[in-house]
């Protein structure tokens, strides 16, 4: 049996559910749309460097940084205490 749907029926049985689904989807994704791209470990990093409380107010250009010495110790895969390379610096390292 073929039921012919009028415009009003289409609006009620198709239009309203689609509208409800669209509103719910918008609510779900609203925060992520507002916050922009999110950091996802393992994927490429897109943003330029940020230096908070750095030597100047401007962001540094890594191309202008001086040449660095070779690392003498292999980096660990977990958080470990590490010693300084050149001076008696303290600190720690971690990877994730």
């Amino acid at each position: 049996m073929i039921v012919e749907l009028s415009g009003h029926s289409l609006l009620v049985f198709v239009g309203i559910p689609v509208l409800v689904i669209a509103v719910l989807a918008l609510l779900v994704f609203a925060s992520s749309i507002a916050n922009g791209p999110r950091y996802r470990p393992g994927l490429s990093w897109w943003a330029p460097p940020v230096w908070i409380n750095g030597p100047t107010a401007t962001k540094p250009d890594p191309a202008n940084l001086p040449e660095l010495p070779e690392l003498t110790s292999a980096p660990g895969s977990t958080a470990t205490a590490a010693t300084g390379v050149a001076r008696t610096l303290g600190g720690a390292s971690a990877s994730w």
């Binding site: 990093w45 943003a47 330029p48 460097p49 940020v50 230096w51 908070i52 409380n53 750095g54 540094p60 890594p62 940084l65 660095l68 010495p69 070779e70 690392l71 980096p75 590490a82 390379v85 390292s93």
Partner: peptide, 15 residues
């Protein structure tokens, strides 16, 4: 205190 977020051209510790 200072916080730097960005890539390193070489090994991270000397950088």
């Amino acid at each position: 205190f200072s916080v730097y977020v960005g890539g390193a051209d070489s090994e991270t510790r000397p950088f």
